[in-house]
Design a protein around this nucleic acid. Structure first.
Length: 883
RNA sequence: GGGCAUUUAGCUCAGUUGGUUAGAGCGCUACACUCACAUUGUAGAGGCCAGAGGUUCAAGUCCUCUAAUGCCCACCA
């Protein structure tokens, strides 16, 4: 095995094994009645997506779960796919054709859509390739796209069903309008961000009298569309003015002063301009008071013909000019700085305009009800729990969902109109040949497309070709776990639950695991514009995919955000390298004939020495914890356990101890078995490295025993009878002695390779036997020429001392003993012991403690106090003997 | 305005249902490269667990309040 290179080189293994797994179809899952299904649907990345750290974390977690359950013998399906991402993709392709000097309008709708498909064929699988790079074991033969023909069928089906149920309606409402994308957005797509603006105080002159009313606004350009001024009926300042008429400046429209409870007397002047076509509150006022609705903007946020002189100016330009004009007329009273929060397009970050337009909506309250129930009854559980409240809070205040978008790329709304009957709406899965009403053949389809999320909310069942009944859907639905980030709880998670309850009459998944957001070291979100991105592919290139996965997972405690610096990946790389080299050591020293025996059958527990029993016990203890942590989505704890077990127990102690006796058959068998089982447990976390080593180990097995791949092997069973906590403690007692000896050596600067002599005194018979039985180990790792056992507790001449539990240690040395220093060392130790003893004495003197604490705790405390006192006594004796 | 989260070693963070003298990684100090691994080993230093009250025999852990930071939600013209 000398040909195994020294540092682990992930580049030589990763692609090789990924190809091997794919070619062997290890990722594919099919309904198997005798097996338990385990299914995750991937949060479909945008087709335009490029893998970032958030994806890397999200998909590593899913892959760990899938590989774990697959090895546990479940039929594990990870359903992959991509999202057509309407606005995002349209934007990307528009930029793409702009290089040819083209606009989408130049091409026309059909040609443009063709270009998007072409773009998708060419570049749309980038993210898929990248997911493979990190090791994702998705069933790629099932790869879905939200615009697949069958999937589109499901979307239409859902629209029609909801319409027929009366849950979809069309109407004129104020919606969030992105002037750049020129489409309506849902409330979720227009997140509020704080902006530094101003509050402008405008004077509106009274018509019939002298004077004016002052209104405050943050968007003065909308005044052109004002059709009233409102005050609170309780407001004494304006009591006499209600019902009077004002002249709207610049436009000279006559507008009434109305009274409404909605007006906050304390804000601004207590008088508010009412612009029903440009503000949701004003819209409500407009409806209530039957006001005129005057739209003053084009869809691109330039002013329209209703803005008279300001026509065709951009909204912000118009604002400046209007303010100038008002100032000139003496109608601008003052300007105050004012911070406000306003919606921004989640795709292009443009300030969104509240805009009156005709859109399609879904009535959400009826859909929300069963979805709320499902979570309240615990059928769906959030991890961490706190997201339950966030979910319920949103669901209980749910607003209707604006689902129409004025873009080209997406699912065209399955609504048709007859040119003859004009406004008659025909909702149909397929285009009707003629108008069902008047029989005219001239039918045209609604121009709008559906919100992207109107297709993604069907993901857990539409990927199984719903509404077609089929075995896959029956077997894998409801899916097991959804793994996602908090940002899309409302967008996606909540809506999937509603869709599942509505169309499948069942929950879409049982668990929702919400992981944190990946941020940079300063806590900022990683983004291209901030230039603080750590590219996962660069990390893979530099450190390897396993290192990427390990490091990401090890710092992701449940649901907390991840603050990431590039250096973190060194830990993963170093760990991979450690495993690699330890395995190299095991394999180069392995005698396959000796190792290839069944541990349980061949050896009784009593046949093994304490060190072998210790490492086996530790392995199964760790396995037990890892299982528990994985079942509770505590990935970091699982992976950190594996790290410290392998590095600090298996390598630092076990391998070092057996090294001199490595050809002994018992050592051979145990080191081989522990490594092999460890690799299996490691596999979900570090799939490539574990496969690479495991395959090398397989090569040493007799042909008949060989298996094809670690990834389709079994998850190790816990051998409860091997776990022995008392034995673990005993073994660790020996390590403690060795550590103390090493400590003594260093304290007087003895060269690492110089042999020394140690005398010890053991305070119990059991300990004496233990130390005697393992004196070879102590001598070897402590670099001793001799370890002798004192008959009496007495410091030999020319020694320095230390205590390890109930063993007193004396290291012999030549030269002059620095008694003062030695005294000092002992004194310090004694002081800290005295402090601890005082605390214990106080506790044990407390009658409340003795009465109320459980007996085992009291006993433990007594025992511990006794031990401390013993140690103190021994130290004090050691100190005396120095004099 | 409402809600959630965070505050533990120089830095980044673990710490499961309260129970011995609070842990890890990185960084730091000293020593060590023929003998699996310097992407390493051995040993070590480093903590009033944000602050103030409270519950309890016992609090980093539970409760209340305060402060700082971050995030989410809301129709503050």
């Amino acid at each position: 095995m000398n040909e195994i290179p020294r540092p682990y080189n992930p580049k030589e293994t990763e692609d090789k094994w990924y190809k091997f797994w794919e070619e062997n179809n290890f990722f594919s899952a099919k309904p198997k009645p005798d097996k338990k299904p385990f299914c995750i649907v991937i949060p479909p990345p945008n087709v335009t997506g490029i893998l970032h750290m958030g994806h890397a974390l999200n998909n590593t977690i899913q892959d760990i779960l899938i590989r774990y359950h697959r090895m546990k013998g479940e039929e594990a399906l990870w359903m992959p796919g991509t999202d057509h991402a309407g606005i995002a993709t349209q934007n990307v392709v528009e930029k793409f054709i702009a290089r040819e000097g083209l606009k989408r309008q130049d091409l026309g709708r059909d040609k443009f859509i063709e270009r998007v498909w072409k773009w998708k064929e060419e570049y749309g699988s980038t993210i898929i390739r990248q997911l493979k790079k990190i090791g994702s074991s998705c069933d790629w033969q099932r790869l879905r796209f939200t615009m697949d023909e069958e999937y589109s069928g499901a979307v239409k089906e859902v629209f029609v069903r909801l319409y027929e149920k009366g849950l979809i309606y069309q109407g004129n409402y104020i919606i969030n309008w992105c002037p750049r994308c020129q489409t309506a957005l849902s409330d979720e797509e227009a997140p509020h961000r704080e902006i530094q603006g101003s509050l402008y105080y405008l004077r509106y002159p009274l018509k019939e009298a002298e004077g004016h009313v002052v209104v405050a606004t943050t968007r003065p350009e909308t005044m052109l569309g004002d059709t009233a001024v409102a005050v609170n009926p309780k407001d004494k300042r304006y009591k006499n003015l209600v019902g009077k008429t004002l002249i709207l400046p610049l436009i000279n429209r006559r507008i009434k002063i109305i009274a409404d409870e909605m007006v906050d007397m304390k804000f601004g002047t207590g008088a508010v301009k009412v612009t029903p076509a440009h503000d949701p509150n004003d819209y409500a006022l407009g409806k209530k008071h039957k006001l005129e609705f005057v739209n003053v903007m084009h869809p691109d946020a330039r002013m329209n013909e209703n803005a008279l002189d300001y026509r065709d100016m951009d909204r912000f330009e118009a604002r400046e000019v209007i303010l100038e004009d008002l100032k000139e007329k003496g109608l601008l009273e003052k300007i105050e700085p004012h911070t406000l929060s306003a919606g921004h397009c989640y795709r292009c970050h443009t300030l969104v305009e509240p805009y009156l337009s005709k859109q399609w909506f879904v009535k959400m309250k009826p859909l929300a009800k069963p979805a709320i129930e499902a979570v309240k009854k615990g059928k769906i559980k959030f991890y961490p729990k706190r997201w339950t409240k966030v979910y319920l809070g949103w669901m209980e205040n749910i607003q209707d969902w604006c689902i129409s978008r004025q873009i080209w790329w997406g699912h065209r709304i399955p609504v048709y109109y007859c040119r003859e009957c004009r406004d008659e709406i025909i909702v149909s899965r397929d285009k009707p040949e003629k108008c069902p009403r008047c029989g005219a053949p001239d039918i045209f389809q609604d121009e709008d497309v559906l919100d992207t999320w109107f297709s993604s909310w069907l993901w857990p069942f539409a990927t199984f070709y719903w509404p077609k009944e089929n075995q896959d859907l029956k077997y894998f639905y409801p899916t097991s776990t959804l793994v996602t980030a908090p940002e899309i709880i409302f967008f996606w998670v909540a809506r999937m639950i509603m869709a599942g309850m509505e169309f499948m009459e069942n929950i879409p998944f049982k668990d929702v695991y919400i992981h944190g957001t990946v941020r940079d070291v300063e806590g900022k979100k990683m983004s291209k514009s901030l230039g603080n991105i750590i590219d996962p592919l660069e990390i893979i290139n530099e450190y390897g995919a396993d290192a990427l996965r390990f490091s990401l997972i090890s710092i992701t405690s449940q649901g907390q955000d991840v603050y990431l610096a590039k250096e973190r990946f060194e830990q993963g790389r170093n760990f991979a390298n450690k495993i690699w080299n330890a395995s190299r050591f095991v394999l180069t020293n392995l005698d396959p004939k000796q190792a290839a025996v069944d541990l349980c059958v061949y050896f009784k527990k009593e046949d093994l020495d304490i060190i072998n029993r210790w490492i086996l016990s530790r392995f199964y203890s760790v396995l037990k914890e890892v299982n528990k942590n994985l079942d509770n989505y505590k990935f970091n704890e699982a992976v950190n356990l594996l790290y410290s077990f392998f590095w600090h127990e298996f390598c630092d102690w076990y391998l070092e101890i057996i090294k001199p006796d490595i050809k002994d058959q018992k050592n051979q068998v145990v080191m081989y078995k522990v490594l092999e089982k460890f690799l299996r447990v490691l596999h979900p976390f570090m799939p490539f490295l574990s496969e690479e080593i495991w395959q090398k180990m397989q090569a040493t097995e007799p042909q008949s025993h060989r298996a094809t791949s670690i990834m389709v092997n079994n998850w190790p069973h816990i051998q409860e009878q091997i776990i022995d906590k008392k034995l673990e403690k005993e073994a660790e007692g020996i390590f403690g002695i060795i550590t103390q000896i090493r400590n003594l050596r260093i304290s007087i600067a003895i060269k690492p390779d110089q042999l020394v002599k140690v005398s010890c005194f053991t305070h119990t018979k059991a300990k004496e036997r233990l130390v005697k039985e393992n004196s070879a180990i102590i001598k070897n790792l402590g670099k001793l020429e001799d370890l002798d056992f004192l008959a009496k507790s007495k410091r030999p001449d020319a020694t320095i001392s230390a205590i390890s539990d109930d063993v007193d240690l004396y290291l012999h040395f030549t030269g002059l003993l620095d008694t003062a220093l030695e005294q000092e060392k002992i004194k310090e130790k004694m002081l800290s012991l005295q402090k601890a003893i005082r605390a214990k004495s106080a506790q044990l003197a407390n009658s409340n403690f003795l009465e109320r604490a459980p007996k085992e705790i009291v006993d433990k405390e007594k025992e511990s106090k006794k031990q401390l006192e013993d140690e103190l006594k021994r130290l004090s004796k050691m100190a005396d003997e120095l004099r």
